[in-house]
Amino acid sequence: MGFNFQSTWAIYTRELMRALRTAFQSILAPVLTTSLYFIVFGAAIGGRMPDLGGVDYGAFIVPGLLLLTLLSESTSNASFGIYMPRFTGTIYELLSAPVGVAETLVGFVGAAATKSLILAAIILTTATLFVDYSIAHPFLAVGYIMLVAASFSLFGFILGIWADSFEKLGIIPQLILLPLTFLGGTFYSIDMLPDPWRTAALFNPIVYLVSGLRWTFYGSADVNIWVSFGLTVGFLAVCVGIIAFIFKTGWRLRA
């Protein structure tokens, strides 16, 4: 089958360059929002909150906040990355090039995931200005962040192929992803919820992501790390499967 490194590199670098054109916004915006969250939740409310699982509340919300940005940025970067060429018609070039699903994915999704990782680094750095935190398992944390960034970039890629209008492009992130993230224990431990809600929360997939990342930071979490890890890898695999199917059938790509 073969893999075209040169093509992949071309796609990857161009996608990153595109982000650089708006580098100022893409860096400043998350720094600003993260700072706001820390001021409101960390400083204003956090002072009145008890420690959670032995972790100071300000530090407790760091992984959740990180995930909040990671999910929305990975999804929107990757979905725009593939939606725009479809919308403007420039996708003809990609379709006529000697590249298949592997090159396209590594190029587009790799670039989207890279952007997310850069963002994660910026957010974690910003966080140090507001709270004291340390990371119990730094390598696992980086690995988990990469896994989440890759999974949601893949998910965004699917959205970008599925959407046939800007409206649809925004609908899933805004109406499903964002609420689930807020309800998924970003700012609280699901142990704090009274029982019917606690059980209900376990049906929210984001809970497992937040919990997994929190475990890599503080060594303890709401759900077992392996369950979190397994579900994330499973999600990634499903996304890859869907994209492979899309390329095989040409759905929404080839007339």
């Binding site: 075209n4 093509s7 796609i11």
Partner: peptide
């Protein structure tokens, strides 16, 4: 292509260099 589909914000020389890379050269 028949339609003038281009990446509007891209610079001419970069757009052309990208095409070369995309086709594996």
């Amino acid at each position: 292509p028949q339609e003038l589909s281009t990446d509007m914000f891209e610079q001419v020389d970069r757009a052309v260099a990208y095409s070369r890379g995309l086709f594996g050269l």
